[in-house]
Design a protein around this nucleic acid. Structure first.
Length: 722
DNA sequence: ATATAGAATCTTTTT
DNA sequence: GATTCTATAT
């Protein structure tokens, strides 16, 4: 193997990381510094130069996309298939382990993986069965609580209610939910990590086997690992494994779902012989964009320290546009895109990034108006669509009769005369005897404990599932799917739905058959040939919900949230809605830690831009039906001024907007922070709800605890901060 | 079993 | 403002 192909395309820092001596390595890779390249070349280097066998390598990522990309690039670089190597997501690999050791993990052989919607439905049922009021104990909250505990590696039995009633119920719901999952032979996403971790802890011989096999672990996006994922890695690594972790603390934007940036620092502490490398040369953006981003992120206190630089030229200044309102902002963005396209640029080279999905609507409307094709990321994915989930539920039930989530979903879809009353009876029986719904239904029929009509309807349903099981045995996967969606009546059911939507649903069901046809050859895991195809397909559907909607091939403007933009790059980026309360989001403004995460999010957004970055904010914005005034985001004032250029449309430059907000933000005698508690001599204590204008002439709306909401003029109000 | 009206609620997202 | 769920009526 010619090693120069691996080393030549690298810069010094990259090469040092790639060729680092065997041992633990931490690579702090800034945005656009060639993070994936280093991972891929490191693997290639180990295989080609160090004589390490692919069989001993495990590479973990967070998304299927990243895993696929890594695998593809390894194969491209080496010119051979990457077989034997494990490259996958944390959840994908945990799932693989559980399939291989289902018995030791305490699962049934054909256990099913629930997605978050399934999990929510399951929790609704558990809460209802506990006789709790659903409005007082929202399933969403329990789901959040349970997943957060699982991400910390904690089971219900580890938790202490500390005499807190609320907590006690939460833990009880958790415990009941664990029972439910065990009974139904299903696992949720967090459970995959937690249970595979326990599998290793409780079966030292299995752990030893994997420890001996995987002497080289590579981890992508290390800053996004949560507690259980890090514990899982440490356990697998044991004493003799070399870990190669790549991450960027400045791009940690998933703290709210349990990711712990601290794991990066912890890594060097836990593995004392760790060599640390920094990749700071950026190959993506112009100098001005990088300097602006560096300036912004320097306002964060908790950093490992890193400064991106480029050999590229300064490029254009970052343009700042102060819009009158959100309509004006949208108009500005679309006009700029038009200019770009007229100048020969592609629409797909432009991305509009926003903090929250609700912001996309106005921009979409404006794009439609000017006939500009666009694509919004973040809609429903293929395997999450209603009709697809219905079909999958039938398949799941055929595959695993105890899957209560699937049973509940399809027992009366399409309607077949099994009403709420009957299902209630089944549930009660199931709960009374601690059995699955399927078994309870069987029991009720055998003992004729239902009204005649319901009994025969239910019997029909059980026959249907049993017959489906028999008739699809031995068929190819796509034939199985086709059979099930026809015989279940789903096709007829959706044929009745009129209009565009019904037609789309039928098309999707057709597409599901197609997915089954393609699955056989492509997506099977060669090391798990003994798992039957249907089971593998169902797991695939849960673990890899498919691409987001949109025609990739069309040349269209890209619209997405800042979170979904991570890892992508565009020649021209619009960062919009930079207003206090929108970005940083009002729910993240209180805690310093969360605010720093918002700032990192802004940093991520800025560093997506290759050539042109445009930042905009609206002085007045209609959001959630109400019109509100907002101050420009503090993030704007944190960008060093020399990299910004304020622009106005139509050339009518009046007061420089930058000056306006600069004084507004920095002046402490204008405490117009929304949500600020204030004291008024006559009205007492209140909270700032809204304001209009700025400086001394501003009018402020304050909600007083004793006398209600009032508009006051700052100049005369004489407010005191509390 | 379905249709409709009223109410609630509205970061960010992958697996 | 728009969606999504819940309660009630038919």
């Amino acid at each position: 193997m010619d090693v120069s192909r691996i080393l030549d395309p690298l810069n010094d820092a990259q090469r040092q990381a790639v060729c680092a001596e065997q041992g633990n390595v931490l690579v702090l890779a800034g945005a656009g510094s060639g993070k994936t390249r280093v991972l891929v070349h490191r693997i290639a280097w180990m295989l080609a130069a160090e004589g390490i066998t692919p069989y001993g390598i495990l590479a973990v990522t967070f998304t299927n996309k990243a895993a696929g990309e890594m695998r593809g690039r390894i194969e491209q670089l080496l010119g051979i298939p990457s077989s034997g190597m494990w490259v996958g997501t944390f959840h994908g690999i945990a799932h693989r382990l559980l399939r291989a050791h289902w018995k030791e993990a305490g699962l049934g052989q054909s256990f099913t993986v629930m997605d978050s919607e399934d999990q929510l439905r399951a929790l609704r049922r558990v809460i209802r069965e506990m006789g709790l009021d659903e409005s007082q104990w929202p399933a969403k909250e329990s789901q959040w609580y349970i997943n957060a505990r699982k991400d910390e590696g904690l089971r219900a039995k580890h938790l202490d209610h500390q005499n807190d009633t609320h907590l006690r119920y939460m833990i009880e719901i958790y415990a009941q939910y664990e029972n439910y999952c065990q009974r139904s032979n299903v696992v949720d996403f967090a459970e995959l990590m937690l249970r595979s971790h326990e599998l290793w802890l409780q079966n030292p011989e299995i752990l030893r086997h994997y420890q001996q096999r995987f002497r080289h672990i590579l981890v992508d996006e290390f800053q996004d690992t949560n507690t259980i994922q890090y514990a899982w890695l440490r356990l697998l690594a044991g004493q003799h494994c070399a870990m190669f972790a790549v991450g960027d603390d400045d791009q940690s934007i998933y703290g709210w779902r349990g990711a712990r940036v601290e794991n990066i620092q912890q890594f060097s502490r836990d593995y004392s012989n760790t060599s640390v490398f920094r990749l700071e040369q950026n190959y993506r953006s112009t100098g001005n964009i990088l300097n602006a981003a560096n300036g912004l992120i320097s306002h964060n206190a908790e950093r490992m320290g890193k400064n991106l630089w480029t050999a590229d030229s300064d490029g254009e200044l970052i343009q700042l546009y102060a819009a009158f309102n959100e309509q004006d902002e949208a108009m500005f963005i679309v006009e700029r895109i038009n200019d770009w396209v007229n100048g020969g640029g592609l629409r797909s080279e432009c991305a509009v990034l926003y903090r929250s999905n609700a912001q996309s609507r106005v921009i979409e409307e404006r794009l439609i108006q000017s006939g500009m094709p666009y694509r919004v990321y973040g809609g429903l994915r293929f395997f999450e669509r209603q009709e697809i989930k219905d079909a999958l539920a039938y398949l799941r039930l055929v595959n695993n009769r105890d899957d209560d989530t699937a049973f509940e979903r399809v027992v009366n879809t399409p309607t077949r005369g099994i009403g709420a009353r009957t299902v209630d009876t089944i549930r009660e029986t199931a709960r009374g005897s601690g059995i699955s719904l399927w078994r309870a239904a069987y029991y009720l029929i055998e003992h004729k404990q239902l009204a005649a009509r319901a009994l025969s309807a239910l019997q029909q349903f059980l026959y249907l599932i049993d017959n489906l099981h028999k008739s699809i045995d031995g068929l190819a996967l796509h034939e199985q799917i086709e059979h099930v969606i026809h015989d279940s009546g789903l096709i007829d059911h959706y044929k009745k739905e009129r209009g565009e939507r019904g037609r789309a649903r039928l098309e999707n069901l057709d597409e599901l058959i197609n997915a089954g046809r393609n699955f056989d050859d492509e997506d099977r895991d060669p090391e798990q040939a003994e798992v039957d195809t249907l089971t593998a397909f169902l797991s695939h559907a849960s673990l890899e919900a498919g691409e987001r909607q949109g025609d990739e091939w069309d040349d269209c403007v890209q619209l997405m949230t800042l979170h979904s933009a991570k890892g992508l790059e565009f020649k021209q980026v619009f960062l919009c809605g930079l207003e206090e309360g929108v970005f940083p989001h009002k729910l993240s403004m209180e805690e310093p830690g969360r605010l720093e995460e918002e700032r990192r999010l802004c940093y991520v957004g800025m560093t997506r831009a290759k050539q042109k970055l445009m930042i905009s904010y609206a002085e007045k914005r209609r959001l959630y039906g109400e019109e509100k005034f907002a101050r420009p985001s503090r993030f704007i004032s944190e960008i060093p001024r020399e990299y910004l250029e304020e622009i106005r449309l139509g050339g009518s430059v009046s007061t420089p907007v930058y000056d306006q907000f600069a004084t507004r933000v920095e002046d402490n005698d204008a405490p117009l922070q929304l949500g600020q508690r204030v004291f008024h001599n006559k009205f007492g204590e209140g909270i700032v709800m809204n304001y209009e204008g700025n400086g001394r002439h501003a009018r402020v709306q304050i909600n007083f605890s004793t006398s209600g909401s009032k508009w006051l003029v700052m100049e005369y109000a004489n407010l005191q901060l509390c």
